[in-house]
Every structure is written in C-alpha cells, then in structure tokens.
Design a protein around this nucleic acid. Structure first.
Lengths: 189, 189
DNA sequence: TCATAACTGAACAGATCGGTACATTTATTG
DNA sequence: CAATAAATGTACCGATCTGTTCAGTTATGA
C-alpha cells in the first residue's frame, strides 16, 4: 500500500495538533512524536500549512462520517435523529481525548478570512448545516433552515461549554433546549 | 498619572492579540504596533504570559461591564433582559473589529487545563452563567440554573456562528430560540 | 534645580521556528 | 538480483522567538 506513510502522518499529526494547537506545535515535535522523519514530511507536504490543511480535510471527513453514522444508530425517524445530535455529542464529550472542536480552534488560530484553514473550517460547518437542514425538512419542520441553524448553534455552544468546562452537562442542557425547538417547529407535543 | 503606560500597553495588546492571536503575535510586533519599547513591556510584565493574563483580565472586566450595561439599556424587566442578551450580541457581531470571543480563542490556544489563561477563560464564562442565573431567577424561571445554562450555550453558539460565518443572522436565530426557552421556563405565552 | 523614576533604542543571547541538502539505509517491484 | 522508489538521520540555513543588557533620554516632583 503506497500512501500509507502519508496517511499515518496525517492521522498522527491530527492527534497532536488537536491536543496542543497548531502554532504551539513545531515540526520538530511532530518528528519526535510521530517517529516520521522531517524529510519525509516535507516530501509529502511542501509546507506546514499544507499539512495542516490535509489534517483538517481528514478531520472533516472522519468526523462527519462518525457523527452521522452514530446519528443513524440512535434514531429511526428524522425527528429522533435531530434530537440524537445531542446524544452523539455526549459520547464525544465523554471521550478522554475530547478537546473541543478542531475547526473552532483552527478558525481561532488562523483568523484572516482568506486563510484556507479558516475557509475550510467554515465549509465544515456549512456541510453540517446542510445535513441538519435535510433532517429538519424530513422531520416536517415549518422552517427547516431556521431549525437547522438553531440546532447547529446549540451544538457549537454545547461544544464550547464542554471544552471550557463551565457546564456540568452541556449535552443534557442543549438536548432539552433542542427538544423544545423541534417540538415547536414540527407542531407536536 | 502613574500606571498609564501599563494600561495603554494592555489596551493596545488586547486589540492586537484579539485580531491576530496569541502565539501568532510576537513581542517585536507588539513593540512595532504599540510604539511602546520592549524594555518597558518587560518591566511591567516579567513574561509574555503575564501580559496575556493581564489582557484577559482587562477583557473580562470591560466586556462584562459593557455587556450588562447594554442589557440594562435594552430591557426593563428581567425577562426582557434575558432576551436582550441576543440584541446585545447583534451589536457586537456588527462591529467591524468583531473576531469572536477572546476567551474561546484563549482556551483554544492554551489547552492545558492547568494553564492560567485556560482557567481564567473558564472563570469568565462562569461569571456570565452566574449573572444569567440571577436574571433567570428574577424572571421567575422554574429552573433558573438550567435556563441560564441554555441561554449561555445559545450565546456561545451564536458567537461561534458569527465568527465562522456559517449563519447569516446568528443573533436572530438564537434570539428566537431563546424566546421559546424563556417562555416555556416562565410559563408565559 | 536636582534627584529620581520611567521610558527608549539598539544590540544581543540562546532557543526554536519552518524548511533544505545530502548521503545512507530500507522497501518494493520488475 | 538488480533497479528504483521511499524513508531516514543529521547537519545546516536564515528568520523569528522570548527575554536581557545597558547606556542614554525624557518626564516628574520635592
């Protein structure tokens, strides 16, 4: 299998960037912790920024994959799946390695709106919104776009709360709020 | 007036850190942009980290001060003030210099839970929760703590949405959600 | 006016930054 | 086996990082 080293690098670099941040992690530390030589790294990626972008692409793919797979496991109907968002979040928050959202952090470290890490982070959220939108429409929401936006805002807020530790049960609080919004938007009890 | 230089440094450093991030901003750039000599900086603060902590303290104070003052300007009753949270957010989002929440970004760049920048950021959010809690209690909420947590989660989510630009009107969406939650919690129409 | 404190500018130290050069070793594949 | 591709280790580059040193300037206040 050819590109295994490259994939290995992206996977391991993700874990390190996710844990320690982008600017705070130097290439030398990446070498020390991954066991992959610097020469190899710079053969696969011309700059650190390119590696970061590859890591973000990898994270976007694996996260959305995992997230929606878990969503399907929790709920049968679209409405159940909308609420399951917050059960899946709880699973994530309970992971020992949980450190908040990679994309929120990326957009915090690379703030210029033109920076590809920034735009890619925004794109990740846009894809989530799109998926939430479809679910909301399938659930029969009066205004699917509005409900999706609100659920996404609740999700991001819960992530921040979980990461910063100012709420003992952000998944629970946001799920309860979501239930009220979903019920109101779908006209059920 | 004695400590004016120190205050000037903190104010100007805040603007630069807020715009460009902590790790991405070197002391030399701080010198170039503030016009304050490096010698003076390191006389007032022994390390860059100490300056950062002072900047965070300054931001905590000025932000909460501004925020709750604006809250009072928007609403008469506790309930109105709870909803005004999201009108004040809109004001903030509309500022040209808006770049998200300083404390979310600080906790993204300084992730070790023991790091003072991290704990101080969490403390800022705790103080907001406390204030929201009092407002929720005054508004007659059935479970003031739960309502306060939900409103805070909505607020953080709206900030992330505004910063990352994946929602055209995060203040509006979160306010509508907040209205549903506040009405339900206070048993009014 | 004179002492004292605050501030400045520029040079510097040692470490680390992202990134390169190159010779060597390890795998893969015909 | 031979040829080729991939990965390694190390030393290095110039730039930048946080932080220091020190001699000189500016402001303050008795």
């Amino acid at each position: 299998m050819r590109p295994s080293k490259r994939d290995e690098l992206v996977r391991k670099a993700f874990a390190i960037f996710y844990r320690d941040g982008f600017h705070a992690t130097g290439m030398d530390r990446l070498v020390a912790e991954t066991g992959i030589s610097k020469t190899t790294m710079f053969k696969h990626f011309r700059t650190k920024d390119e590696l970061i972008l590859a890591v973000l692409r990898y994270r976007d793919e694996t996260f959305r994959n995992w997230f929606f797979r878990r969503l399907d496991a929790y709920g049968e109907t679209p409405k159940e799946k909308l609420l399951a968002i917050f059960d899946v979040l709880r699973e994530w928050f309970d992971e020992p390695a949980f450190r908040g959202c990679m994309f929120i952090k990326a957009s915090a470290e690379f703030q210029e709106p033109s920076h590809p890490a920034y735009t890619q982070s925004a794109e990740h959220k846009r894809l989530l919104h799109q998926a939430f939108c479809r679910l909301a429409a399938d659930a029969g929401a009066i205004d699917p776009d509005m409900l999706a936006r609100q659920l996404l805002i609740l999700k991001e807020g819960a992530i921040v709360a979980a990461h910063m530790g100012f709420d003992a049960d952000p998944a629970g609080a946001s799920k309860q709020a979501a239930k009220a919004l979903v019920d109101a938007a779908t006209g059920s009890a």
